[in-house]
Write a protein that binds this DNA or RNA. Structure first.
Lengths: 239, 239
DNA sequence: GTCAACAATAATTTCGAGATTTTTTAAAAA
DNA sequence: TTTTTAAAAAATCTCGAAATTATTGTTGAC
């Protein structure tokens, strides 16, 4: 057990990870399954189950889960083990409002301070996202992971010139939570709006350095995402 | 090893903890030592050292440290162990700015929505803080822990009517970081300003439901704290 | 039939030894 | 002297069994 980081007798290794330790691998594996809904909200995470499913030892799993508790993807109760964090409409609304608050502040600063390198990153990320969006309308279900990644990269590029480490840290926490809701919602795929047009309008405003317009458009983009998710979420929230 | 939660052959148990598991106890112990500066910024956290000092097992310590990494009080590098998170003037400035951003938003909402029960909590917390402040001017060095606790309780009471779970969560992360800087700074005690008067003015404005004034005063209060800490921090930052 | 006490079962939590990796030390080569 | 290489030491990381705690099921008294 040296080069290949996954535990011995198991096949469920995600190829996209570059983990250097088993804890890291366990963390990424479980995190991924929670984000894309394979491990459903509220599911009890028993060690025996996780051990058989992924092949990690108890302490390793425990540490990975502790890390996920810190990111609020997992909850824990003393002496009663771990559960996948629940989802709810209230939480989604609060989360979205808070993320908007943080993300728009970062966006303001980023547009204000962004240099040529920042513009380059945004252009590149927007281009890659557009390509994926185009392919996505052709073959919807396949590209889930790729779309999420490029979507994240675009929005991160937009705020990447914001110099505040702490604002980025907070945004990361909130964005990951939002991503989970988005992916759970997209399981019952209801796209039906022109997401690309929304992205383009934000992109144009940012390149024009129009802070207020960009923030207004990005805010509306976030709100629309919330509206769509809110419609789909209750269907599965009965867990 | 059942009732008393601390490990067998050791005496360093903090009395204020109500931990139900060893991981919890280890977490609280180490956290406390980091916050009050006993474990200095940048210190390498070797397992052998921690094991001898506190008496916890390797996995237990590892899990506690992982939790602290999630709270950014500890850093970790794959295969190279853990360190107490470093401090810097840049980080302090960024942290304070971000905390102000989050805390003032929570304060706005709280004053706007606070009911009688909220007012009661604020009055009670302010009263307790005032008592401690009075005793503090008499015997400065003794009350550090108590002052920090009551100070935290007062500021938490002020924002306790803000309904956003996520805003509270983010604030908790930032406040803990600030507390660490404050306690490290207060090791070279340089108080010399009328903190009580600042608290009183914020309290009065909040009770008068004057959102703008309260936020302005609280913002200035945070800025003054930053100014004081900035002067003292460099003296020890050379670690 | 309900409840309490107790036993049996199942799950979590903890420990410490062994595997793996990094760091240090020392010797050899350039 | 400086750099390379190899061996030794030290530290981290992982595992699975043992200890602890929670849960379930059963029995008997009221």
């Amino acid at each position: 057990m040296n080069i290949d980081v996954m535990p011995s007798g198991n096949a469920k290794a995600p190829k996209h990870t570059m983990a250097r330790s088993l804890v890291e691998a366990a963390y990424e594996t479980i995190r991924h399954e929670i984000l894309n809904g394979t491990l459903q909200p509220g599911t009890k995470l028993r060690f025996e189950m996780l051990r058989k499913r992924f092949g990690f030892g108890a302490s390793t799993l425990r540490e990975a889960l502790t890390r996920l508790v810190g990111e609020a993807l997992v909850t824990s109760e003393e002496q009663r083990g771990f559960k996948v964090a629940p989802v709810s409409l209230e939480d989604l609304a609060d989360l979205t409002r808070t993320r908007k608050f943080v993300e728009l502040e970062a966006l303001r600063e980023s547009i204000r301070l962004g240099d040529d390198a920042w513009e380059g990153r945004v252009v590149a990320a927007f281009h890659r996202l557009s390509k994926t969006e185009a392919r996505l309308s052709a073959q919807p279900e396949l590209m889930q992971d790729e779309f999420e990644q490029r979507n994240r990269e675009f929005h991160l590029a937009l705020i990447s010139a914001c110099p505040s480490r702490w604002l980025h840290h907070l945004h990361g926490i909130l964005y990951q939570q939002s991503e989970r809701y988005r992916r759970i919602s997209l399981l019952n795929r209801v796209v039906s709006r022109d997401v690309h047009a929304e992205h383009k309008s934000v992109f144009d405003a940012a390149m024009a350095r129009d802070v207020d317009l960009a923030c207004r458009l990005e805010g509306e983009h976030i709100d629309r995402t919330l509206a769509v998710m809110s419609k789909v979420l209750p269907l599965e929230a009965a867990i």
